[in-house]
C-alpha cells in the first residue's frame, strides 16, 4: 500500500443507494463509462470530481440501505475508493461491496473520531489507520476478506480458484 495520504469523506446516517448513485444516472441511462461521475451527485456534487483513488468514505448507521443495485458501489469502485468505514451497513449492499472488492469496515468508534477532510494513511492488511502521530485500529477483517481483496472481488476469486475464499479451510 502506498505511503501517500488519503482523504476522509465523511457522510451521515442512512446513506441509501439513491444517494450513492441516483437512479437517473444508472449505467443504462448515462452510459457504462460515465455513470461514476454522478456518485453522490445530489448529496455532494463536488465529490466525483474531487475524490482521489484510495480515499476513504466514512458513514453513519445503515450505510447502503435501499435497493440491491450493484451499480451504486460499482461507481465507487470505478472512482477507486480505498475503503468504507461505517457504523453499520445494510445487508445486500454490504455483499455487493464484497463482491466488488471494496473493503468495508464496521467501526462505530472510529467513525466518531474521523473528520471530513482528514488526511490519513491506511493499511488494510494491518488494519491500521494513521492520522499524523495517532493511529487507530480497524476491526480485523476476516481472512475471507483478505483473500477477496487480494484477487479484487469474489467473482475474480471464484474465476481463478473455482471455489469461494476460505472454502475447504472453513470446514
Amino acid at each position: 500500500m502506498s505511503e501517500c495520504l488519503q482523504r476522509i469523506w465523511r457522510f451521515g446516517d442512512s446513506i441509501n443507494t439513491d444517494d450513492i448513485l441516483p437512479g437517473k444516472y444508472a449505467p443504462f441511462m448515462v452510459g457504462e463509462t460515465e455513470f461514476q461521475r454522478y456518485a453522490f451527485a445530489h448529496l455532494r456534487p463536488e465529490f466525483a470530481a474531487d475524490v482521489r483513488p484510495g480515499d476513504i468514505l466514512v458513514g453513519g448507521r445503515n450505510w447502503g440501505l435501499g435497493s440491491s443495485r450493484e451499480y451504486a458501489p460499482q461507481a465507487l469502485k470505478k472512482l477507486g475508493i480505498g475503503a468504507i468505514i461505517a457504523k453499520s451497513f445494510a445487508r445486500i449492499h454490504y455483499r455487493n461491496l464484497l463482491n466488488l472488492g471494496i473493503p468495508a469496515f464496521e467501526a462505530p468508534e472510529l467513525v466518531e473520531l474521523l473528520q471530513d477532510g482528514d488526511n490519513v494513511r491506511y493499511e488494510w492488511a494491518e488494519g491500521i489507520v494513521h492520522r499524523g502521530a495517532e493511529s487507530f485500529s480497524l476491526p480485523k477483517p476476516p481472512l475471507f476478506l483478505h483473500e477477496v481483496l487480494a484477487e479484487g472481488s469474489v467473482l475474480a476469486y471464484y474465476k481463478k480458484y473455482k471455489k469461494f475464499p476460505g472454502e475447504g479451510r472453513l470446514s
Partner: peptide
C-alpha cells in the same frame, strides 16, 4: 434470502454461496 446479480450468478455457476 435475497441477493444482488453477482451473488446470484455465482450461486448458479457454483451451486454454492457464502
Amino acid at each position: 434470502t435475497g441477493m444482488g446479480a453477482t451473488d446470484i450468478a455465482l450461486a448458479v455457476a457454483s451451486g454454492r454461496t457464502w
